[in-house]
Amino acid sequence: MSSSIASRSIGILLPLVVSLIVSGVVLLVIGKNPLDVFSLIATESFGNARRIAATLSAATPLLFTAVATAVCFRSGVFNVGVEGAFLVGGLAAVFLGFTLPAAWGFALFPICFFAAALIGAIWLYVPGILLAKFEVDEVVSTLMLNFIAVAITGYLVNGPLLSPLSGNNVTPLIHEVAYLPRLMPPSTLHAGFLIGLVCVAAYGFWCRYTPAGFEGGLIGLNQRFSRAVGISVPRTIVGVMILSGVIAGIGGAAHGMGQMHRFSDGFSPGYGFTGMAVALLGRNHPIGIVLGAILFGALASAGTTIQLFSNIPLDLVNIIQGTVMIFAVVELGRISLRRKKGTANAG
């Protein structure tokens, strides 16, 4: 186990080191001292308790989207629709958070989270059933559903759910009683981070200690084999899609009730896609996912605040992120290769 942790850490560290080298060269070219910049990034990410909290806060939505992605990728289902489920789940939770009576108090938490999970589940059930029953390519269907999610939520916050107090594209704030508590005030790090960790742990448990998780892993490795030993591949596919939708929806709810306290344009700046990179980097392993989410959280939070202390453009952080993602995509390529091979074998 410990060696697997070590190898997973290397799996994350190696791309990081390479991306640091690449961005170091870029920095030299634009006449900056890379060591100064990197140490600035390090302090801005982890320099003190407050910065660590900011990093974890930025990592929080990624925990959910990465787990939601990993559930599917591990099972060989190429679901890229976590972004959409995160959006619709978040909007559902926020909507109930400001329309239900504030007097309901803490009861709002389970209600909002349940609604978000349900909407997320329905959202991804659709491409799941399309794939399982009609072999509609899930990459295409989930990608399209993302556009639909952006359009629907965009319409709602620009129209029916627009805050009457605002000229901008935001809903009203949810009731204060429905705010998830902050863990280290004044930092925005909120209880959603813990819920995210619970999701990661539950995912780890699901993989190893449930028959459904066992089957998911098997169909991810070899569908023909799974079929031959009596596993229903369609049912497993639909199952992991629903699970993915539940987690993504809960993630949207946590983001809405813990961080934003409302829904707005830009509610998710692509957490679903960054979550994909995290899942790929972490090789779908729970520990890898936590490390990957923290890495991307650090880049997001430090990448912004270093602009306060040096005239490093956001682009540099994007270069670091991008290089790390390239490695994640290498892994993506391996998965899609396996898909192709799997199809060829099935034929």
């Binding site: 028959p211 066992f214 070899n222 084999f225």
Partner: peptide, 23 residues
């Protein structure tokens, strides 16, 4: 097709010998 249907070569030996009875 032992390598593609009889087994999942990338999975562990225990997984391969149990699959199907795991429930």
């Amino acid at each position: 097709d032992r390598r593609h249907e009889g087994l999942t070569t990338a999975a562990s030996i225990e997984t391969n010998v149990i699959a199907g009875s795991h429930r």
